[in-house]
Design a protein around this nucleic acid. Sequence first.
DNA 1: GCCAACGTTGGC
DNA 2: GCCAACGTTGGC
Length: 156
Amino acid sequence: MAYWLMKSEPDVFGYDDLVSNKREGWDGIRNYQARNFLREMRKGDQFIFYHSNATPPGVAGIGKIVGEAEPDPKQFDPSSKYFDPASKPTDPRWDWVTVAPVKKLRYIPLDELRTMPELVDCRLLARGNRLSVMPLTPDEFEAIVAAGSPKRRTAG
DNA sequence: GCCAACGTTGGC
DNA sequence: GCCAACGTTGGC
């Protein structure tokens, strides 16, 4: 299983919206590198749902891939902000994946993510990073999940 | 193929 | 709202 991180602006679509909707097409990816990562995603892969342009920005929960990449229908919809007049139905340029919620996490603000030693190499924290879809190593994924989960006590 | 202009992302 | 970073576009 592979692990990913995907950004969304909570004013547009946040983790709680995913919980309400149960599943959703992850639309609007208009960057080739991000699209190529979408195409590598497989059913069952899990991802960290990151809130960008939020106050503060940070991690909100865990999601999973329930439908693999297929053409994003909004690229053909002239009324959509994601309309791409250069994309042809015979040769679609942009894809989406279908996602579902797994577990809401304690909100982990960006400032806290920056203190985590497991994330020093994570592209999310690189200066000037703008990529909205990126792979995570299993260690990075697990570290984020652990940071957002209730502390476990040992018996006794 | 270079590179300046432009648009978008995203933290602050 | 500002601005740094950086991907894309388009002239040449």
